[in-house]
Design a protein around this nucleic acid. Structure first.
Lengths: 195, 195
DNA sequence: TATTTTTGATTGACTGATCAATCAATAAAA
DNA sequence: TTTTATTGATTGATCAGTCAATCAAAAATA
């Protein structure tokens, strides 16, 4: 089988496998063996390409946040008005694949990991800031700058909160209901400013 | 040293030690040795009283959620009107000891653990439901029942979201600002209904 | 074209460290 | 003497990480 140019293929397979295994497992305490098996290679190969388990996990966060970002960029381009762009940001946050239980479980595990791994934390902070600034940028077209910051803070918190509550599966909220709650938050607060 | 009646003392010491170690470590992958050391006893004694690491961790969640609950009950009793009770619930959620980085780190770790441990999940679900029902009960005195459920959902999500965003320490929000954001959410939405 | 060399891909087997859990032994109360 | 508290020593399992060896494609050479 040894063909040349396998590296990118294997890296992708391992990163995808890691996300899947972590999601199923609901934790970062997964073994390199499990990940490698899921990717269809030997544990030794995973070490060969990533050097360490920690590096593989960090790559996994990085790659998946990058994909998330691409989704947001596409959605923003498709939207015309500031209000539509706000809706687009919300919609992408709750889109199906992100809202799957395993995906939520994986992100939760990474959030916890951010308390320990500075690099993981950095990536998640970048994501959080981007969400915030996407919201602020479009809110500024609809209300004073000061209020924009405050409302964005609230909306971002609500999105994250709905997300982790979904992870608990206590009172599962549908995607639509989550979107509606966040939309309602924005609409109500924007209206309140107009008096 | 062997005195009789040490069991409750040791159990408490171990549960407290576990919370501290988990908080510092930012993860549940802590050793029984670390916890025992922090509690000033041998690892063997921790096993003697709790049987297993998992049991100790579950007890730790249970005890700390119980304390949280006691705090809420006290605060609710001190408040008179429904609106004051709503504020009390919010205030307790963000009170200093709960908002300390190590505490947030520990809760985050438990949230992640809930994906794996059914018992941990059960406790956290109970907490989430209680928060929701405390909010609904008092909102019902201020608005129609249907709206009460919706607003409570939003407020609970916002509280949890502010909490985990605080854990990321990306753009640290003060306790007061967090409370203000949540209060603002309630006030604005209640006003919108009267409008 | 045929042959040799080099290089990337891959793994099985192994190592060292870590850790949860056990247990037999000790010491002090009751 | 019986019971409770306590620990040091040990065991068994798990895992990350290493390494030497293999295999086949590609490149170089004849």
């Amino acid at each position: 089988m040894p063909k040349v140019g396998m590296e990118p293929v294997r890296r992708k397979a391992l990163v995808d496998a890691a996300m899947r295994v972590i999601g199923d497992h609901g934790s970062l305490t997964v073994t390199m063996s499990e990940i490698a098996k899921q990717a269809g290679v030997s544990p030794a190969l995973a070490h060969h390409y990533f050097g360490s388990k920690e590096q593989l996990l960090i790559e996994t966060v990085r790659v998946h946040l990058q994909r998330l970002r691409d989704g947001v960029v596409t959605a923003l381009q498709a939207a015309k008005t500031p209000r539509e762009k706000l809706s687009a940001v919300i919609r992408v946050s709750f889109q199906a694949d992100q809202f799957a239980p395993e995906t939520i479980a994986a992100w939760l595990a990474f959030y916890a990991e951010a308390q320990r791994s500075e690099e993981t934390r950095r990536f998640l902070v970048i994501y959080a800031r981007r969400l915030h600034s996407n919201l602020v940028a479009n809110l500024k077209a609809l209300c004073p700058a000061g209020d924009a910051g405050r409302i964005a803070e609230g909306a971002a918190a609500m999105i994250d909160g709905l997300y982790i509550r979904q992870g608990l599966r206590s009172a599962p909220i549908s995607t639509e209901a989550s979107i509606a709650l966040t939309e309602d938050y924005l609409t109500t607060h924007l209206n309140a400013l107009k008096g």
